[in-house]
Lab assay of single mutants.
Amino acid sequence: MDSLLMNRRKFLYQFKNVRWAKGRRETYLCYVVKRRDSATSFSLDFGYLRNKNGCHVELLFLRYISDWDLDPGRCYRVTWFTSWSPCYDCARHVADFLRGNPNLSLRIFTARLYFCEDRKAEPEGLRRLHRAGVQIAIMTFKDYFYCWNTFVENHERTFKAWEGLHENSVRLSRQLRRILLPLYEVDDLRDAFRTLGL
């Protein structure tokens, strides 16, 4: 685990949702873990991680939370803000982990979509996460503002959007929607068949 708060310049560089993210070879993951008790929730931990020694950050987080003694009788909500969406292998590990821990839910807000040039399996990884109940969305100004005030050593500076933040968020949201769209259509068809008694 690194220091509790991320350096301001590092956050702006790593999380910037630019179309061509040249040189950004690491994934950063800011997280919040909450325990839900009926209508209220309690923050248990927050911080950030990054890839280390060739190990992807998603797997580092799974190792980290596996060391906790999570009460199977309580519900936990984990929220990630990531600089890149998970690769196919990490998505598979996360989905398997969630299946083994049904009392834990995960939301992922990502700055950019990761696509490995040689495999093109990453969209299927995102669909697999979605099927496992993970809520996946692209970061918007509101999410960047929250991260800036929660995870960044900002020295009381106000978060300022860079040129193109909104447009890139919209573009990436549409792309993510197209990736997940087949799932929505299949769910709609299943509901229609059930309604018709087929």
Score class of each variant (00 low, 15 high):
Glu122Tyr: 06
Phe115His: 15
Ala121Phe: 13
Cys116Arg: 07
Pro123Ile: 01
Arg119Leu: 08
Tyr114Lys: 00
Ala121Ser: 09
Glu122Asp: 07
Arg119Phe: 05
Phe115Trp: 15
Asp118Lys: 01
Asp118Ala: 06
Phe115Gly: 05
Pro123His: 12
Pro123Thr: 01
Ala121Tyr: 00
Ala121Pro: 13
Phe115Ser: 04
Leu113Lys: 02
Glu122Ala: 11
Lys120Cys: 12
Ala121Leu: 10
Asp118Leu: 12
Glu122Gly: 15
Ala121His: 07
Leu113Gly: 13
Glu122Phe: 14
Tyr114Asp: 15
Tyr114Arg: 06
Glu117Arg: 03
Glu122Arg: 03
Asp118Arg: 14
Tyr114Phe: 03
Arg119Ser: 11
Cys116Asn: 10
Leu113Gln: 08
Tyr114Leu: 01
Arg119Gln: 12
Cys116Asp: 01
Cys116Phe: 14
Lys120His: 13
Arg119Glu: 12
Leu113Asn: 00
Tyr114His: 00
Leu113Asp: 00
Phe115Thr: 02
Arg119Met: 10
Pro123Asn: 10
Lys120Asn: 08
Asp118Gly: 03
Phe115Pro: 01
Pro123Phe: 07
Glu117Lys: 07
Glu117Trp: 06
Asp118Trp: 03
Ala121Gln: 09
Asp118Asn: 14
Asp118Val: 01
Leu113Ala: 03
Arg119Asp: 13
Leu113Arg: 13
Phe115Gln: 10
Lys120Phe: 15
Glu117Ser: 12
Lys120Ile: 02
Arg119Val: 05
Asp118Ser: 04
Leu113Val: 09
Asp118Phe: 02
Lys120Met: 10
Arg119Pro: 06
Asp118Cys: 02
Pro123Ala: 12
Cys116Pro: 04
Glu117Asp: 14
Cys116Ala: 12
Glu117Thr: 13
Pro123Asp: 05
Leu113His: 01
Phe115Lys: 14
Arg119Ala: 09
Glu117Asn: 11
Glu122Ser: 06
Tyr114Ile: 02
Cys116Trp: 08
Glu122Met: 00
Cys116Gln: 04
Ala121Met: 14
Ala121Arg: 12
Pro123Gly: 04
Tyr114Thr: 02
Pro123Arg: 14
Pro123Ser: 07
Phe115Asp: 04
Phe115Cys: 10
Leu113Cys: 04
Lys120Trp: 12
Pro123Glu: 05
Leu113Tyr: 02
Leu113Pro: 07
Leu113Trp: 03
Cys116Glu: 03
Asp118Gln: 02
Phe115Ala: 03
Leu113Glu: 01
Lys120Gly: 08
Cys116Gly: 08
Cys116His: 11
Tyr114Gln: 00
Phe115Leu: 09
Asp118Ile: 02
Lys120Glu: 08
Cys116Leu: 09
Ala121Gly: 06
Cys116Val: 14
Tyr114Glu: 00
Tyr114Ala: 07
Asp118Pro: 15
Leu113Phe: 15
Asp118Glu: 07
Glu117Ile: 10
Arg119Tyr: 09
Ala121Cys: 04
Tyr114Pro: 15
Glu122Lys: 00
Glu122Pro: 05
Glu117Gly: 10
Glu117Leu: 08
Phe115Val: 07
Glu122Cys: 07
Tyr114Gly: 11
Pro123Met: 04
Lys120Leu: 06
Asp118Tyr: 08
Cys116Ser: 02
Lys120Pro: 02
Ala121Glu: 09
Leu113Ser: 12
Arg119Gly: 13
Leu113Thr: 03
Pro123Gln: 13
Arg119Trp: 11
Leu113Ile: 01
Lys120Val: 05
Ala121Thr: 06
Lys120Tyr: 15
Lys120Ser: 08
Lys120Thr: 09
Glu117Met: 09
Phe115Arg: 10
Ala121Asn: 13
Glu117Phe: 05
Phe115Asn: 09
Cys116Tyr: 15
Glu122Thr: 05
Glu122His: 12
Pro123Tyr: 12
Ala121Asp: 10
Glu122Gln: 15
Tyr114Ser: 02
Asp118Met: 04
Glu117Pro: 06
Arg119His: 13
Phe115Ile: 02
Ala121Trp: 09
Asp118Thr: 03
Cys116Thr: 06
Tyr114Cys: 01
Cys116Ile: 11
Ala121Val: 05
Glu122Ile: 00
Lys120Ala: 08
Lys120Asp: 07
Pro123Leu: 08
Tyr114Val: 00
Glu122Leu: 03
Pro123Cys: 13
Arg119Lys: 11
Pro123Trp: 05
Arg119Ile: 01
Glu117Tyr: 08
Lys120Gln: 11
Phe115Glu: 05
Phe115Tyr: 15
Glu117Gln: 11
Lys120Arg: 14
Tyr114Met: 00
Pro123Val: 04
Glu122Val: 04
Phe115Met: 14
Leu113Met: 01
Tyr114Trp: 06
Pro123Lys: 07
Glu117Val: 11
Arg119Thr: 11
Cys116Met: 10
Arg119Asn: 13
Glu122Asn: 15
Glu117His: 10
Asp118His: 11
Ala121Ile: 05
Tyr114Asn: 00
Ala121Lys: 14
Cys116Lys: 06
Glu117Cys: 14
Glu117Ala: 08
Arg119Cys: 09
Glu122Trp: 04
